[in-house]
């Protein structure tokens, strides 16, 4: 592991004095409201879909998720997603929209290098981390529970 270099001690206060701070309060408020509203709208449609006979609550949840993913992919293709994300930050990145956008943007971007070597090989360039750590940690958690016999 490479140790992260430090800014020269005399220069550190200068660079800090001139940096523009991130608008933390505004970013947090916008992320909370936008992300919350997105989940609220999804919840509304989930409840609506679960009224259809033969569709369980779990199915309704999956259906809404697929619709949200499709919309995120479409907005990415239209070139709108990144513009909204600049404004709402984690409000779009934390919900599954962020996951869908990371795959769609990579697939789209590397299309110029071909569908196989470009899109195929690079599609999970960013989302790969989520899959990697998600599966890795889930296996560990499940193994621990199996060993402890609490499954």
């Amino acid at each position: 592991m490479v140790k992260k270099p430090k800014v020269a001690s005399w220069y550190d206060p200068i660079i800090k004095a001139h940096g523009t701070p991130r608008p933390l309060l505004r970013n947090c408020l916008v992320a909370f409201i936008f992300g919350g509203a997105l989940c609220a709208v999804a919840e509304y449609f989930q409840l609506l879909i679960s009224l259809i006979p033969g569709i369980s609550d779990k199915d309704a949840s999956s259906i809404v998720m697929v619709i949200v993913i499709a919309l995120a992919a479409l907005l990415t293709g239209l070139g709108v997603f990144d513009k909204i994300a600049q404004q709402v930050g984690a409000g779009l990145a934390v919900p599954i929209t962020g996951f869908a956008n990371s795959i769609t943007s990579s697939t789209l971007e590397f299309k110029s290098e071909g569908y196989v070597l470009g899109s195929g090989c690079n599609g999970f360039k960013l989302a790969g981390a989520v899959i990697f750590f998600g599966i890795g940690s889930a296996v560990v958690v499940a193994l621990i529970e199996l060993i402890l016999g609490i499954v």
Partner: peptide, 10 residues
Amino acid sequence: VGGCFCLIGQ
């Protein structure tokens, strides 16, 4: 709940 998770992310 959704808003809180996004807030944590931010």
